[in-house]
Computed example of a mutant assay.
Amino acid sequence: MANFKSNASVILSQKVPACRNCDYCLWHEKFSDIALHCDGLIEASLIEPIVGVQEEWVQLFQFEAVEQLNIFLRKADLRSVLSACEEEFGAKIQQQVIVNTKQMTVPATIVVFERVKPDRIRGYKKWLGKIGEAAESHPGFLGRELLKPIKGLQDDWVIIIRFDSEENLNLWLSSPIHKVLMEEAESFLERVQYKKIGRGFEDWLAHARGIKNSALPPQWKMAMLIILALYPIIMLISIWILPLMENWKSAMSLFVSSLISVSVLTWVAMPIVTRVFSFWLSGGEEVKTKTTIIGASIVVLLYLMAILLFVSL
């Protein structure tokens, strides 16, 4: 039985005519608005089609626990939006759930869903070892996760492969060894589906709505939130860390302090800040002016509070 405290994700995919791409981005906002009102949301992403790899648009919603994902999937307004979206584009939305995943915010990730013939499981497991070794030896490989089928939740074997860049991921997918191994797997696989979840360092604010880069919130909002998160980190480093390195060369101490500040900013501060200010980053048109004023005012007030706090230390 699945651990209901484990991370769980749902991947929604749909084929959309190329002339309707902008329309689909607006529909993704409707899905994301529903997800943002659910507890435990970790990730919301929109991935456009990739020539030669995936024909569909893909939406990823990841939650802290299976029970929270199930609440999202059972919401009446989600079912209503799913039906309306299918009617709008005349194409069925495929839904795939994966359980026990790590957070998929890394530079480039490919999720492979494989339906294995029941009588070929043993051969499939041996093949997994071969393709795993080949991927690990490929430039830019970061890690691999294998998720076995879970009755009632996840029908396919799921392989999540992470690379340090889009370029290295694409090189792996197009490499001769990958093609040879995928041809070898045809005898024991009923089907294979690829879903690309690639994103990089620049997408901090995708936590707010998960939309693609060109549609992210305005740069001034990004700058304000980055300053809000970065200022306390820099001040704390200057108070607690830099005195420990006072005898170091400035080049080395600056490098270490930069390493600490960027790491904390990326993996701790920005995910928290973007979640807290999701209302500001993703308000609908009817509340756009109101949320802009409220959000900016709160950020400025927090600036002043932080300055007063560190001045008093």
Rank of each mutant, 00 (worst) to 15 (best):
L146W: 12
A229N: 07
E186H: 09
A206G: 08
M182E: 14
V158H: 08
A215C: 10
L236W: 04
S187R: 08
E136T: 11
E184L: 03
E202R: 06
V256T: 03
E145F: 11
L142P: 00
F255N: 02
W127H: 13
A134E: 14
Y231M: 05
E246N: 08
M224S: 14
E183M: 11
E190Y: 07
G200Y: 00
S257D: 01
K212R: 13
P176N: 13
I234Y: 02
W157H: 14
L244M: 10
I237R: 02
R162Q: 15
E184H: 05
N168C: 11
S174Y: 14
D156G: 12
N170L: 15
K148C: 04
H207Y: 14
I226Q: 06
I234P: 00
A251C: 03
W157G: 06
F188L: 03
I160G: 12
I131Y: 02
Y194K: 06
D156T: 14
P218C: 00
L153C: 12
V192A: 10
E186T: 10
G210F: 04
I131M: 12
D155N: 15
F163K: 07
W127V: 03
P243H: 00
G123P: 05
K151F: 03
S257R: 01
G123F: 02
R144D: 06
K196S: 07
P176H: 10
I177Q: 13
A208I: 00
N213Q: 11
K195F: 07
M252A: 01
F201N: 01
L181I: 01
L225S: 05
W248Y: 04
W248L: 01
L254D: 03
N168W: 07
E190S: 12
P176F: 14
L228M: 10
L205I: 08
S257E: 02
L181D: 07
L142R: 06
F163L: 11
K221H: 10
E136L: 09
G143R: 05
I233G: 01
W240G: 13
S238H: 07
I161N: 15
N168Y: 12
A185Y: 03
I234G: 01
G140P: 02
L242H: 02
G210P: 04
P176W: 07
L142E: 02
E246R: 08
L225V: 09
F141R: 07
P218T: 00
F188K: 03
S214L: 11
E166Y: 06
W172M: 10
E133K: 13
I131N: 13
